[in-house]
Amino acid sequence: EESFSSVVPVPVEAGVMSPGTATRELDSIMNELLGLGLEVSEPTSNPPPMAHKSMKDKKPEETKESDSGKQKEAKKPQHPPLSEKVSKNVDAIDDLLGSLSSDMEKMGVRTAAKGHCASCGKCIAGKMITALGQVWHPEHFVCTACREELGTCGFFERDGKPYCEKDYQNLFSPRCGYCKGPITQNILTAMDQTWHPEHFFCSHCGDLFGPDGFMERDGKPYCSRDFYRLFAPKCSGCGEPVKENYLSAANGTWHPDCFVCADCLKPFTDGCFLELNGRPLCSLHYHSRQGTLCGTCGEPISGRCIAALDRKFHPEHFVCAFCLRQLSQGVFKEQAGKPYCSVCHTKLFV
């Protein structure tokens, strides 16, 4: 009869590993496992050789059952589903980590979990990140918006959630009233809006505002020069914009210094003026343009008048050119464009 027995290998003395070396070894193994992405093959253990029965000792019924079992095994699929492979890989990693932890504990190295990841809730045995009052797996501490890892760069916090700088600025930073982009550094507040300092300029000429500040029209800022030129009323005298003190007269707006007689350019000292064709005139030049100056004294005629010799006269100033007596009832004789009474005309010219 043939017989087989298992042979026990000779024990080999294991080298003593220091705690620091064991910790580094554990970290390296964890890094390798993380890099594999759950593609670790299931460890195989060689079962101890078993004593086989000889073919002579087997009964015919046992041989038939073994043959039928082999046929059933041949019919089974050779490749298990992917989900079963992943679960087996995960179980294998867990078994491997469990065995590593037990070995490290035997060597005097503490392998207690450093905490539970705030994202996945699993224990952290390798590298970790501490942020926002919690601990994380490095690959699980990511931006809330774009899911980019934040372990190697800075982050911003909003409502207890981490964000990368780009997404934080796009989501929460104030916007410029001109370019609508996020404002990350210097900010200027004006007209109930926020602006980049370099984007707050005159809407007409594009120049930045100086010490004079700006003026607003229809929600847009303007420098004082362009504002007055575009929107301020124009002086009816000089045509320039009226900025401060002004006068409204003769259907127009005037600078106080520009409101003068259109002919003699003298100001109206008594505040009285006469208008002709939209232009202010003093009394003298108004009556001069109207032809209502007295032909004798040259003063304006505001009341009754006598029209004679293509001119107009105050009644008391229409007199004989020789005797200077008033020509009553308008009876006169003309000689060389001058009025004479009948008596003086007879004496002088007849």
Results as ranks from 00 to 15, higher is better:
Glu62Cys: 03
Lys64Asp: 10
Glu65Ser: 10
Glu65Gly: 03
Ser66Leu: 14
Ser66Met: 12
Ser66Gln: 14
Gly69Met: 13
Lys72Arg: 15
Lys75Arg: 07
Lys75Ile: 06
Lys75Ser: 13
Pro77Asp: 07
Pro81Asn: 03
Pro81Leu: 02
Leu82Ser: 09
Lys85Leu: 11
Ser87Lys: 14
Lys88Trp: 03
Val90Thr: 09
Asp91Ala: 11
Ala92Met: 02
Ala92Ser: 12
Asp94Pro: 00
Asp95Ser: 10
Leu96Gly: 09
Leu96Lys: 09
Leu97Trp: 05
Gly98Ile: 02
Gly98Phe: 02
Ser99Ile: 13
Leu100Arg: 14
Ser101Gly: 14
Asp103Ser: 15
Glu105Ala: 14
Met107Gln: 15
Gly108Gln: 00
Gly108Ser: 04
Arg110Tyr: 12
Thr111Ala: 13
Thr111Glu: 12
Thr111Cys: 09
Ala112Gly: 12
Ala112Asn: 12
Ala113Gln: 05
Ala113Thr: 09
Lys114Asn: 12
Gly115Asp: 07
Ala118Gly: 14
Ser119Thr: 14
Cys120Tyr: 00
Ile124Asp: 04
Ile124Pro: 02
Met128Ile: 10
Met128Val: 08
Ile129Glu: 10
Thr130Lys: 13
Gly133Ala: 04
Gln134Phe: 12
Gln134Glu: 15
Trp136Asn: 06
Glu139Ile: 12
His140Lys: 04
Val142Trp: 01
Val142Tyr: 00
Cys143Leu: 00
Thr144Phe: 05
Ala145Asp: 12
Ala145Lys: 14
Cys146Thr: 02
Cys146Met: 01
Arg147Thr: 08
Gly151Ser: 15
Thr152Glu: 10
Phe156His: 08
Arg158Pro: 03
Asp159Gly: 07
Asp159Pro: 03
Gly160Ala: 06
Lys161Arg: 13
Pro162Leu: 04
Pro162Tyr: 02
Asp167Asn: 02
Tyr168Cys: 01
Gln169Lys: 07
Asn170Arg: 08
Asn170Tyr: 03
Asn170Cys: 05
Leu171Asn: 05
Phe172His: 00
Pro174Gln: 00
Arg175Ile: 05
